[in-house]
Simulated assay, not measured.
Amino acid sequence: MAEENPFGSEAESSQVLSSLNLSEVDVNPNQRLSSVLLNEFNYLPWSRAVSLALGGRSKLGFINGSIEVPDASSPSYESWLSKDQLVMSWLLNSMERKLAEIFSYSESSSKLWETVKEMYGSQNNAARVFQLKKDISNLQQEGKPFVQLLGSMKSMWNELETYRPHTTDASTLLKRAEEDKIFQLLSSLDSEYEDLRSHILMNTELPSFTSVCSTIQREEVRRKVMNIGDMLDFAPRIKT
């Protein structure tokens, strides 16, 4: 006689084992919520990936405020605190180490979430868009399997879509067209202009194309004046 399966049928057994594995993942404080780690420039794709991961684990309410904090004297407080600290651990593990250290003393997962949003959520994303478009343009197969090349390209396309979602709004499209001209102009500059390029891209608001051109021309003149000054300083003095 065959030994009786303690979990019931094979299908039922598979479901039980799956639920057990899921439970182990849900209580592991060392888990990352996403392969995308938060840095100073990728808040949007990071926040979306983290929100999806928390939603899939029924924990989104801890950061969006829909799960209220019980009173400290309530019998449910300890259970809430345990889960909230678990969510905090997941969030911190989904950041680069230097950022995790900054936010590690947050009072709760919702406070941590709001602080990160205030610090990085309203920043100008021009620098990241510029880098993505540059990376996409420079992407080559270089002997890699096609599926790997396609995966890299789709990943960058998806992140770019996060910063630039599809729209038919005329003013938005005109703004993007001018941004693309600025990106193309900046990417064509010599390496000696790297600091200036970074300064322009990290502005709270990306300047107009005309303003960028004026800034580059002023920098070029400044460099020429400095070079002339250096030449005069080192030129041999004529004795009278």
Rank of each mutant, 00 (worst) to 15 (best):
P165M: 00
F103S: 08
S82L: 10
A170E: 13
G121D: 01
V116H: 00
L132T: 02
E101C: 01
I136W: 06
S82R: 14
Q131V: 13
Q123H: 11
S76M: 13
N138T: 09
S104Q: 14
L99C: 05
E101P: 00
E78F: 07
E101F: 00
A127S: 06
S79L: 12
W80Y: 15
G121H: 00
I136R: 14
S76P: 06
F146C: 06
L52Q: 14
Y163G: 05
S171N: 06
N125L: 02
S66V: 03
S137L: 09
Y77G: 06
E96Y: 07
V116N: 00
E96W: 04
Y120R: 04
Y120F: 15
S94H: 01
K117H: 13
T172R: 03
N125R: 02
S94C: 03
S122N: 04
D84M: 06
A126P: 10
L54Y: 10
A100W: 02
M119N: 13
R164H: 06
M156P: 11
H166L: 01
G143L: 09
Y105T: 15
S109W: 09
P70V: 10
S109Y: 09
E114I: 08
F103H: 11
S82A: 11
D71N: 13
K117M: 08
A127L: 02
Q123R: 15
L112F: 15
S104K: 13
S58D: 02
S74A: 10
Q140N: 12
K134E: 04
R57H: 11
W80E: 15
L173N: 05
V69A: 00
S108V: 08
S108G: 07
P75L: 03
F130R: 00
E118C: 09
D84Y: 09
S51V: 03
I136V: 13
K111R: 10
K98N: 06
L86A: 09
I102S: 04
M153C: 13
E107K: 10
V69T: 03
S82K: 12
S110W: 10
Q141Y: 07
R97E: 12
S137V: 05
N64I: 07
A170C: 06
M119G: 09
Q85G: 08
T168M: 06
D169N: 13
L99S: 05
S66R: 11
T172D: 03
F146A: 09
S152Q: 15
W157P: 04
S106A: 12
F146G: 06
E118L: 09
N125D: 05
R176G: 00
